[in-house]
């Protein structure tokens, strides 16, 4: 089943074209890594898909009314805004917002969704702590848990692993893989290509506002693409421990 269809999506910000004619699809059970150099348009692409920036072309998500869209896809922006010192549990419960009618109190299934998200992100010991008192990495995990609690077929996350220690980076991507095994899908923007090749089922390379490549990691990360798009060379091989990707040096 297709969870997302994007056709000929283009975005201009302040008269400057940022995305050109992007088309892609997301099916069930995928972990799609969105990769590309700084300023390539990864964040803008995800926001346009969600209808958060004006765009030309079509996205099946931005076509939906706001609440229906929020039940179809969850979004964790890169900016980790937590304005008030609410408890971790309260913050994660915000993910249930699109599932509750105005004025409707929290139902047992909402509490169950929050509990599942807190368990997945291993946040039990923080549950009652004010979220603003946590470290940056801990806050990131709380915000991922909020997006998980939304329990949408599609999850879109912008740079979730920035600021996380290695164990939690791996654990976070394993959570995404587990979601994919349950038939949901994740679109995640990443800079760490080593994590991307190990955990994503598919990579989409965005460069200068265009999709440069789209496919399984092994087929996408060719030496030519690494040179032209990322300006690096790398050691990339399948090993007994799975695929290993190590950037080596800058290629001008």
């Amino acid at each position: 089943m297709t969870l997302l269809t994007v056709e000929n999506l283009s975005v201009s910000l302040r008269g400057r074209p940022v995305l050109h004619d992007i088309s892609l699809r997301a099916a069930q059970g995928e972990v799609i890594g969105l990769i590309g150099p700084n300023g390539a348009g990864k964040t803008t692409l995800m926001r346009a898909i969600l209808g958060l920036v004006p765009h030309r072309g079509r996205s099946s998500l931005s076509d939906l009314p706001a609440r229906a869209r929020a039940r179809a896809a969850a979004w964790m922006p890169q900016a980790r805004d937590i304005a008030w010192p609410v408890s971790v549990e309260t913050l994660v419960m915000l993910g249930r917002t699109p599932h509750l009618a105005p004025g409707q109190p929290v139902r047992p299934e909402d509490q169950a969704a929050v509990d599942r998200a807190i368990t997945r992100m291993e946040l039990h010991s923080f549950r009652q702590r004010p979220a603003t008192e946590l470290s940056g990495g801990e806050q990131a995990r709380v915000l991922i848990a909020r997006a998980l609690a939304q329990e949408t077929p599609l999850l879109m996350v912008d740079e979730p692993t920035a600021g996380l220690d290695p164990a939690h980076q791996i654990a976070t991507l394993q959570v995404f893989s587990a979601l994919a095994r349950d038939g949901r899908s994740v679109i995640v923007s990443l800079h760490d290509l080593g994590l991307a090749v190990r955990h994503c089922t598919r990579l989409i390379v965005v460069d200068a506002g265009r999709v440069k490549a789209d496919g399984p990691p092994g087929a996408v990360l060719t030496p030519e693409l690494l040179r032209d798009t990322f300006h690096i060379s790398a050691w990339f091989h399948d090993t007994a421990d799975g695929p290993v990707f190590q950037p080596l040096k800058v290629v001008k």
């Binding site: 869209r69 929020a70 969850a74 805004d81 937590i82 304005a83 008030w84 913050l91 917002t97 105005p102």
Partner: peptide, 23 residues
Amino acid sequence: LSLGRGLDALTLGEDAAQAMGIN
């Protein structure tokens, strides 16, 4: 008083609130 849920969602910023269905 009708703004309660929207203001709660805004705790996470304008982008996140809109993506949670807040107009």
